[in-house]
Design a binder for these strands. Structure first.
Lengths: 348, 348
DNA sequence: TTGTATGCGTTATCAA
DNA sequence: TTGATAACGCATACAA
């Protein structure tokens, strides 16, 4: 028997299971069986012929055709509110890795500016027979839940809860993170705490963090606490609020509810000419690569983003394998990264 | 005629073209024609019946089946060296937007750590019949070019050239950006310039920037210039190099070849206790959200990332529509964002 | 143990 | 202008 040629290097019509069958002198069914249930029912000699033919032709099955036939596509859909958000990307990265390891590919849909297109995204993805969905969105699209239900495919929510969606939920322990941050500021001697957040309306993550902050302050009589909702277009408002905070004459500190807010607070503090850790204590939720570089270094709560992505995928895969339990909640703890922005208030 | 019920809200087997045909009392072929070539050859009355049936059933075609039949999938594959890289993400965002507008969906493959899997990525994506590929990778996988050629599908390269790949190329004008940065430092009176880059071996982007920097310095006798390749694990080396630079007693400035290097330089400068714009001039290629916040604010060259992504997609779509011209190069200019890190050297 | 035939949801080629 | 019918590439019930 002469050695078989290497996989054809020329572009051409797709090599199909029929080509392999012909070359091996067997039927298509035999080839298919070799591919799917290699172990059972196969004469070694035939198996070898098929194997050789596959190698010779450089055959690989068409996932499209397989999907059409078995209704499973080895595809997972990921809907992201905003790919520009580093948090989303970090999660995405973990999810993508886990998918690849499990032999799945990720189809990405970015909502960009308008969260209203969530339903559209879900349907577009579903039409490609994605086997499951990972949603990292605001959940503001009324139709989304219905769209998901209609598809009857498993869904896992990351970071944001959706009011009326039955699904697994994977997220940072928001309450714990807020407590951890506030607790750290307290330990460091800061006693007038301002929680700065993006507008909370309808966003579970922000609400949970804020509620935990208030509860924490409520449980510690020596602390004074307040919340400020910072709008993107109102830098002046934030600056004024910081002024008021410091004017109260206690030991003032800010707890930023996420990286976007951290950026805004840094900007305001720079304009005010204040120094973190001196004029103002600071802890921000979300670790960033630049946190060590701003001012004396920013104390942060790091989210286990990679783990979140991986866990989200893991949940989904379990469901795909038939796991049938009520919706689960997986809350992962944050990690306090201490830098100088929260250095002891008494040191000033 | 009674009003048709809304799209079925229950999960169930997919509604197919056959269901529509039956409900409308026509053949599948007719429905298909209505869908694809609505205008020609259709009795208004029949068209209406079909339209009504489609609405009643909430039918939408299966892209999978369509792909199988026509060999076109409305899918575009995106291979990214590292989703963690903000530059890649920014490009990804532009590309994704353009894809959606054109009715395409993006399949994402992240190489993560090992750039050796490029071939694997291309083949995985190709097996899903992606109509074209956008590659933002290092091009270190020998097999990649061959894999692309074999698929016979259009490809566009973003940011990184690949030695032996025939493809459109979309990128920042690297040489122009380096000149712009060096020119700005020179105008501001800095005259001892250090170009800091990640190891250049085999990465076109880095090489082009460095070459343009050297050429610029060569053309200006009053300038002294040097290049330093900074490895991720050699913070000490960078610090030592900066010390030497300043020890020469001229007006020293750093040109960081990308955001990763900017981060490293900031870190080193913080450890040295130097002040940007005073002890050291600085311009970095790549604008970041945190550039305004570090030290006195970092001067940067902003890349038109969104435009790059959109253009890459546009190139691909043109090819898909049959455009047949030799590989093109599209180079977009950077934009200088002046902040205080490059303030006049003579001011110190 | 292997082969034949059918269907997944479309589109396209033919007749009618 | 419309309707059968045959692919597309694969998996599987059934027959051999």
């Amino acid at each position: 028997m002469s050695p078989t040629p290497p996989p054809s290097p020329v572009a051409g019509p797709r090599v199909t299971i029929a080509d392999v069958a012909e070359k091996a002198g067997v039927s298509k069914a035999t080839v298919s069986r070799f591919l799917n249930r290699r172990d059972e029912l196969l004469t070694p000699e035939i198996a070898q012929r098929v194997e050789a033919a596959i190698a010779a032709l450089g055959y690989s099955p068409s996932p499209m055709a397989q999907a059409l036939k078995r209704g499973r596509s080895r595809l997972i859909g990921l809907v992201v509110a905003d790919v520009t958000n580093p948090y989303s990307v970090a999660v995405l990265r973990g999810a993508e890795k886990a998918c690849q390891e499990a032999g799945y590919l990720l189809m990405l849909f970015n909502l960009g500016d308008d969260g209203q297109r969530e339903r559209e995204a879900i349907e577009a993805l579903a039409s490609y027979q994605v086997e499951g969905l990972i949603l990292n969105t605001l959940g503001r699209d009324e139709g989304a839940a219905a769209a998901v239900a209609r598809q009857g495919r498993p869904v896992v929510l990351v970071d944001r809860r959706h009011a009326d969606m039955q699904a697994d939920f994977v997220s940072l322990d928001n309450a714990g993170a807020a407590r951890m941050a506030a607790g750290h500021l307290r330990e460091q001697g800061w006693d007038d705490l301002l929680f700065v957040t993006e507008p909370m309306a309808g966003v579970s993550t922000r609400q949970e963090r804020e509620a935990a902050f208030r509860a924490f302050v409520g449980g510690h009589p020596e602390l004074h606490g307040a919340t400020f909702e910072s709008a993107a277009d109102d830098a002046a408002g934030l600056e004024a609020e910081l002024r008021r905070l410091r004017a109260r004459g206690r030991r003032p500190a800010v707890l930023a509810s996420n990286a976007v807010i951290t950026l805004r607070v840094c900007d305001a503090v720079a304009r005010l000419g204040w120094r973190f850790g001196h004029d103002l204590g600071f802890v921000g939720i979300d670790e960033t690569e630049w946190a060590p570089l701003v001012g004396p270094g920013l104390t942060t709560i790091a989210q286990p983003t990679d783990a979140l992505g991986r866990l989200a995928t893991a949940c989904l895969l379990e469901r795909l394998q038939g796991l049938d339990v009520p919706p689960r909640q997986i809350l992962l703890p944050g990690r306090l990264v201490v830098r100088r922005s929260s250095a002891r208030a008494s040191d000033q």
